[in-house]
Amino acid sequence: MAEIKTIRKWFWVWDFEKEERWLNDMAESGWALVSVGFCRYSFERCEPGEYIVRLEAHGFDEGYVSFMEDTGAEFVGRYFKWIYFRRKSELGPFDIFSDIDSKIEHLKGIARMIAIIGGANLVIGVGNARYSPANLLCATLLMYGLGRIHEKIEQLKRERELHE
């Protein structure tokens, strides 16, 4: 059986680019992502640099997964709103988004997701304030994350003023 290694690791939602970089560093050192779960990543042995790994926040959409597969990408797994793909690097560069507009749309989707969960925590937190500050702390943290995502959106918008 193929050698499998599982690593437990935590990334904040707004650090998804960092997560992607780490997954590609793993592939670069000969470990290709095979499955994902809550703070859990499993890897199998591969040739160093054999795969490029990409992740994306995308609602449940079977049509999308088969569309990606038609372009040579392999579906690795799904966790919550996140989908993970990998593609052999011999097929050429692999990206999910190729223009600023679609990158902004992707970030806006993530921002909506954080805002909903943050808002829910805020409402529950206010109701619970007497008993526990946990939800309020969570809401504060998510609002910080929302700020980080908006920063990225603003940066892309400034870029878009000059080119697409």
């Binding site: 999308y64 569309f67 990606m68 999910i96 190729s98 679609s102």
Partner: peptide
């Protein structure tokens, strides 16, 4: 080079 996600949305 059109990336698949961008193309799918378009």
């Amino acid at each position: 080079r059109l990336a698949a996600g961008t193309l799918y949305g378009a």
